[in-house]
Amino acid sequence: MKGSEAREVAFFGRITASFTHEVKNILAIIKESSGLMEDLLALTREQPFPHWERFSHRVSVIQQQVQRGVGLATRLNRFAHSTDEAIARVDLNELADQLIWLSERFARLKEMTLKLTPAEYAVPLDTSPIDLQMAVFTLMEGCWNQLPAQSEVELRVARSEGLPCLVIACRGEGVAFADLKRGLEASGALQLSADIAAGLHGKIVDQPEACGFALVFSGTLQ
């Protein structure tokens, strides 16, 4: 990334992070206000109130949606903070978890299911967090754009011959690896992801048995 681009990305990240903090404050106010309504409702449980059940249900819906909003704001905040440093140490498990959250809406619109399979151990990598997320997202998006509705895209964290690695595996009705790869090549997603990964000492390896690809990183950025 050029110096001016890096500054722009950092600025964008700083402003976004600040706004996510404010969103969390708003969600906290809604949460505590609805929590107080719930407390007061509980105090009147034995008194006649014809709409008690409906009112109580709405309060619980508010709280569920607050939880959803908090989850998204927290991930967006982390994403924004991933521009704080050009190179930083990331755990691929945490990064993959974040990417799944951030990708959820994109995948839902394509009627895809996303699945995360973390490694049972930490997989640290010194890299550009923003470029790494872009490489993985581009590849995942390329896959779900080729798959039929109701398919599943799995993001798996692993080590391949000792090297940090992210595997994208696809499952769906009539899905064949050769067709998937052809589609990704034609759309340009495979090349774009490979170009970004190359800047991170990474490469894309075919995984026909998983009907997908692995992003393998053979070195770290300094």
Binding site: N25, A28, I29, E32, S33, G35, L36, D39
Partner: peptide, 11 residues
């Protein structure tokens, strides 16, 4: 955040 602190105080 006044609304937050007031709701929390009541709870």
């Amino acid at each position: 955040e006044e609304e937050l602190v007031m709701a929390l105080a009541e709870r």
